[in-house]
């Protein structure tokens, strides 16, 4: 999966830490660090984190496996 957090929005309510403890962490009072590329097996936890965030700062989607690239 791919995850991004809008850290302008994030207010360190830390609900994602409880929902997906292996993938989100706080360093200090407010500095959120997170796994931008968790394994697909973590989908349930990551989705819980997305929904638990009171400021809706987390976006997550499955990896893009479509062949749309012409490089």
């Amino acid at each position: 999966m791919k995850v991004v957090v809008d850290l302008n929005r994030c207010q360190a309510y830390a609900q994602c830490l409880y929902a997906a403890p292996g993938h989100f962490a706080l360093h200090g009072k407010e500095a959120l660090v997170y796994d931008p590329s968790p394994d697909e097996a973590a989908r349930g936890e990551i989705e819980r984190a997305v929904h638990a965030c009171p400021v809706r700062a987390i976006t997550a989607y499955s990896d893009d496996t479509t062949a749309g690239e012409a490089a």
Binding site: M1, K2, V3, V4, H23, V33, Y34, D35, P36, S37, P38, T59, A60, Y61, S62, D64, T66
Partner: peptide, 14 residues
């Protein structure tokens, strides 16, 4: 820490 792959997520049907 965590993965170095910071590819941005997007909807699958982009």
């Amino acid at each position: 820490l965590f993965s170095a792959d910071t590819t941005l997520p997007h909807p699958p049907d982009l």
